[in-house]
Nucleic acid binder design. Sequence first.
DNA 1: ACCTGAACACCGTTCAAGT
DNA 2: ACCTGAACACCGTTCAAGT
Lengths: 183, 183
Amino acid sequence: MRADARRNRERILAAARELFAGEPPEVQMDDLARRAGVGVGTVYRHFPDKEALMGELVRERFALFNEQLRLALDAPGEASADALAQALRASAEGLADDAATRFAFMSGGERVFAHAALEADEFMRLAEVLVRRARRAGLLAPGFRAEDIPMMMCGVCSTMGRPGPGWDWRRHFELLIRGMRAR
Amino acid sequence: MRADARRNRERILAAARELFAGEPPEVQMDDLARRAGVGVGTVYRHFPDKEALMGELVRERFALFNEQLRLALDAPGEASADALAQALRASAEGLADDAATRFAFMSGGERVFAHAALEADEFMRLAEVLVRRARRAGLLAPGFRAEDIPMMMCGVCSTMGRPGPGWDWRRHFELLIRGMRAR
DNA sequence: ACCTGAACACCGTTCAAGT
DNA sequence: ACCTGAACACCGTTCAAGT
């Protein structure tokens, strides 16, 4: 890829992160192009459509989640549930600070997730290792599965940055973690 | 309201429920009007815009939630946590069968919830009574609050009818209920 | 009072022309 | 090889005319 093209691509993603973080549904491709300092056509050259742009945000976020899960792999067996909880907590904090990606997660269709399929698969592999380890140590609720983790993250995400009175996603998160752990 | 106007209003809501249940983001006001057998202008006469239509779906759903919570009030103190869980479970089942309203819940802005403010307030009042009762009976996790309930419902809703592999909103729901209960 | 639907405005996407 | 932005298409919303 030519150097100017690579730079443009990064600028477009940066503009998307900035603008989608504000009033996501209002963001127009023209605004995005202007903010990135390119023509609309250039946006479409790099990303076939608006959903593809959101897909890239989601892909990068999954990569960050995976970094957190990998850190948790270092914990010894008896701390594995704490380490898993901490990895998810740190991931949630990151997502809470990134309204643009939250928008992509929540309003994106299948194509958004298809774009991040590799990273999502890796996420599940890591989650399974951690859950198996914590289960062996007797630290998880009976019947808790690795597949529950994406649902937890999605659910918590849905309550971030919303108007609900008295809403506090961290409480919601800890409620789920409490449900995840053995009594 | 004139009889034909009332009938049109109902037809528009019925059409919204049917069409939004299919491919929500694709639904156009023209399709909606055609399905309801009225002109587009009539849709706008009854609902100032698309969001107002979604707001009405949400309002009616809150009323159904409230019915469930009121049923739970009949339970004796020692069954109050079970009754609360059951009311929420039944509410979630209803929502799972109503993709149109789920769409309204998830993609609607503040105005959607403002339209349902009365019913939402009633929901919180009922939830508070039930939570107080279950807390007195020692059946809830320490620190669990009535305000956690809307977050739980929102979170579970976000995992209904989605493409995630291995996703099962009922597991997600029971995980939250497990977090809600005393050990 | 209420309804209709052509017309308007807005915004995602394309593509012919340019470097 | 990549960029530009005017033009096009689509769809939410309005409003003049009708009953």
